[in-house]
Design a protein around this nucleic acid. Structure first.
Lengths: 227, 227
DNA sequence: CTCTGTGAACCACTTCACAGCA
DNA sequence: TGCTGTGAAGTGGTTCACAGAG
C-alpha cells in the first residue's frame, strides 16, 4: 500500500455535527455563485462576510475533511466546490422518491430547487386509486405505493420524502424502511420511529409557524409587562 | 399596582432558546392528544417517554414560564395545554399571508395542518398578472403583491410565508417588512436580510435533502475506508 | 505580510441529582 | 412516597488567538 503524499480529502473520522452539515450546504451554494462570477479563490473571512458567519467556524467546518485551503491564499473556489459536492454526496445524481401525491407532495415533485441542486425526483407514490397513473404538471408519474419496493431497487432510490397526513406517516415510513431506503425527509407532524441505521429528518411546517408566533407573543407579553 | 398572589404564567425574563421553543410545540401537540384521550394529568416522565426526550429537559423548558406543575402530581393536561397555547400565541387565531402562488405557495395555502394548529391563511399574493384573481383548490384568492400593505393593516397579518424563487426573495422580504409584518417564514434558498426587529425563519428544502445525502455519503466513505 | 488550521477558552444546551413541596 | 423545580456538572458547538505555512 502506497502512502498518498497529500491526502486532499479525508473522510471525517470524528462525527460531523448536524450544524456543520447544514452550513456545508450554504458554503456550496456560495461557491457556486462565486464560481459563476469567475472568482478563483476565496478566504474564510470573505465567505464569512457573505454568509454572515464567523470565519473561524468556516475554517473549522472545512478542516474536518482535510487541508482544503492554502495558507496565505485561501480556498480555491473550483476545487472546494468539487470537494463539497463530493462530501455532500451530490457529485452524482441523487435519486429521490416522494410518497404522498397530495398538494404538498405534488408541489415538491415539481419543485425546481431540487433538480437545480442535483436531486432527481424519480417517482411519486400514493395509495388513492384515482391518483395512480396521473402525472403532475412537471410530468412526474404517480405510482401505487406497493410498487415502491421494486422501484427502490431498480431505480436505486437514495432518499424518500414523506408528504402524507400525520395518521399515515408511521405506516408509510415503515414501508419506506422496508424497501431498504436509508434516508427520509418527513413533512408529517410528529416524529415517526425509524431503526437506528436510517436517517430521519423532519420538516414540521406548523411547528415553524408556531416558533414565529411564539416570538410575536413574547414581544407582546414583554410590552404588556413594561407598562 | 397589586401583587398577584400566585403568578401562574410568568413572562419568560431570560430569553428562551430556539431549541426550547421548538419543543414547546411538540409538548402542545402531545397534550392535545392526551386531552382528546381524556387524560387529566401527566408527569414529565410520561411526556418524555412519549416524545423520546429527557424528563428534566421538559421540566426545565416549562419552568421558564412559571410553576406550571404540581409537585408529587405532575401537570394538569387541560391547564398546561391552555398555558402552552398562550405562550406560543396560538390562543387566538394567527393571521398568515403567503407570498408566491407557485406550486409550493398554493400547496401551503391549502395545507390542512396550518388550520388545524390555529393558523388562518388570510391571503395569497403574487405579481404574475395571469394568477391574480384565481383561487386555489382550497379557495384562497390570489391578490397582487401591491395590495399587501393595505391588507396587512386591515387583516392584521401576523406572519408572512415567502415561497418565491431565490432571485425574488430579498425583494419580497423587503416588501413584507415594509408592510409592517414582523415574522417571516422563508422557503427560498439563501437567507435574505431583515432588520433586527423582524424574526426570520428559513426552511431550506434543498439543504434538508443535502443533509440526508451527506449522511449517505459518509456511510459510503466509511465503508470504503474500512476495506 | 496573509490566511489557514487548531489548542484553549468560552458559552449554551442538556442531564444529573437532589432539595422541597404535596 | 411521587414528582416538580433547580443548582451543579457534563457535553458539545462556537469563538478567540496564535503558531506556522506560503
Amino acid at each position: 500500500m502506497r502512502a498518498p503524499q497529500k491526502p486532499r480529502l479525508r473522510a471525517a473520522d470524528d462525527a460531523v455535527s448536524e450544524f456543520t452539515t447544514a452550513r456545508l450546504s450554504l458554503y456550496l451554494r456560495c461557491l457556486e455563485a462565486l464560481d459563476a462570477a469567475g472568482t478563483r479563490t476565496v478566504s474564510s473571512t470573505a465567505l464569512a462576510e457573505r454568509l454572515r458567519l464567523n470565519a473561524a467556524q468556516i475554517r473549522r467546518d472545512l478542516a474536518h475533511f482535510g487541508e482544503l485551503g492554502v495558507r496565505g491564499v485561501g480556498y480555491d473556489v473550483k476545487e472546494l466546490r468539487r470537494h463539497l459536492r463530493q462530501i455532500l454526496g451530490v457529485d452524482r445524481s441523487v435519486h429521490v422518491a416522494i410518497v404522498g401525491a397530495g398538494n404538498l407532495g405534488r408541489a415538491l415533485a415539481d419543485y425546481a430547487g431540487f433538480r437545480r441542486e442535483g436531486f432527481d425526483i424519480v417517482s411519486l407514490f400514493d395509495t388513492a386509486r384515482e391518483k395512480i397513473g396521473q402525472s403532475t404538471r412537471g410530468g412526474v408519474l404517480v405510482r401505487h405505493l406497493r410498487e415502491l419496493p421494486a422501484l427502490a431497487g431498480r431505480e436505486r432510490i437514495d432518499i424518500a420524502v414523506v408528504a402524507v397526513p400525520a395518521e399515515a406517516a408511521q405506516e408509510v415510513v415503515d414501508a419506506v424502511v422496508g424497501a431498504g431506503i436509508r434516508a427520509i425527509l418527513n413533512f408529517a407532524p410528529g416524529t415517526p420511529h425509524v431503526p437506528s441505521h436510517v436517517k430521519l429528518r423532519n420538516v414540521d411546517l406548523a411547528l415553524s409557524l408556531e416558533s414565529l408566533s411564539f416570538f410575536l407573543a413574547q414581544e407582546k407579553h414583554a410590552k404588556a409587562e413594561r407598562s
